[in-house]
């Protein structure tokens, strides 16, 4: 019994059908607990006031925006190497989720930046990189939509994903070089001396778990949809031939 068994679309659908209710339930539970805890039961920060509560949305969304692209990269590699259709479809299914997460991170960041930095937007390296990441998501999704042949679309988009990852990384460092930042450093790294305090950290962790679960549940659901849509196209094409 290996992971590759689930590369079979029927097995994949059967498995995900079984785990989806629990998964989405857990996602909703984590999100509700984390956000309610964060919103109602955490103290204000002495410098940021109540705007610190935005962290419970901003940080998980930003994390998932990057992780979604990483997941697409891995799925694209699997498609290129082992040619499992489910993998290519999962990458396709993840893209809109990742793009939405990017928008959430950018929007909450802008709303937070307005009172804190005195501006909605600054050409700070992190902000700029996220904007570029969003453009990559847009291009990736547009390419999927534009190509009619399913296998060709999977091939081309996965190559775009690989090349895009390299260039996204390059842009990240180019942008760092180009402008110094306003954005604070990582607040969750394990080796940093100065992390956010525990009162903020615990609900944040719950929220991150919620976003991860939500992402996985959405990708499962959307991959199922893509599999069904492709099966339907195949049946219709066969009928037209007959």
């Amino acid at each position: 019994m290996s992971l590759w068994e689930y590369a079979n679309p029927v097995r994949f659908i059967r498995l995900t059908d079984r785990v989806l209710p629990a998964l989405s339930g857990a996602a909703v539970l984590c999100l509700v607990v984390g956000l309610v805890w964060g919103f109602f039961f955490t103290p204000d920060d002495y410098r940021q006031g109540s705007t610190v509560k935005i962290i419970y949305l901003h940080v998980p969304a930003a994390l998932m925006a990057i992780n979604a692209w990483l997941m697409m990269l891995v799925a694209s590699l699997i498609w290129i190497v082992r040619r499992h259709h489910v993998s290519a479809l999962a990458a396709r299914a993840a893209a809109p989720v990742g793009a939405t997460m990017t928008v959430i991170a950018l929007a909450t960041g802008a709303i937070w930046g307005q009172p804190m930095w005195g501006t909605w937007w600054a050409w700070d390296p992190r902000l700029t990189s996220f904007l570029i990441l969003f453009l990559f998501y847009l291009g990736y999704m547009a390419l999927w939509e534009a190509i009619e042949n399913d296998d060709a679309a999977a091939d081309l988009t996965s190559i775009l994903c690989l090349v895009g990852s390299v260039f996204a990384l390059l842009s990240r460092y180019a942008v760092n070089f180009w402008n110094q930042g306003l954005h604070q450093g990582a607040s969750l790294s394990l080796d940093a001396e100065e992390n956010v305090a525990d009162v903020f950290w615990l609900p944040l962790l719950v929220c991150i778990a919620g976003f991860v679960l939500l992402f996985v549940a959405l990708v499962f659901l959307r991959t199922q949809t893509e599999i069904r849509a492709r099966r339907m196209r195949a049946i219709l094409a066969r009928e037209r031939m007959a």
Binding site: I132, L135, F136, L138, G139, A142, L143, A146, I147, L160, V163, G164, F167, A168, L170, S171, Y173, A174, V175, F177, W178
Partner: peptide, 23 residues
């Protein structure tokens, strides 16, 4: 070989141009 490839190509190529343009 895509219809309306021109606009799509701009969308794909321009983000890839970012590092070159910056440096």
């Amino acid at each position: 070989g895509l219809k309306r490839g021109g606009l799509l190509m701009s969308l794909l190529v321009l983000p890839l141009y970012v590092p070159t343009l910056i440096f």
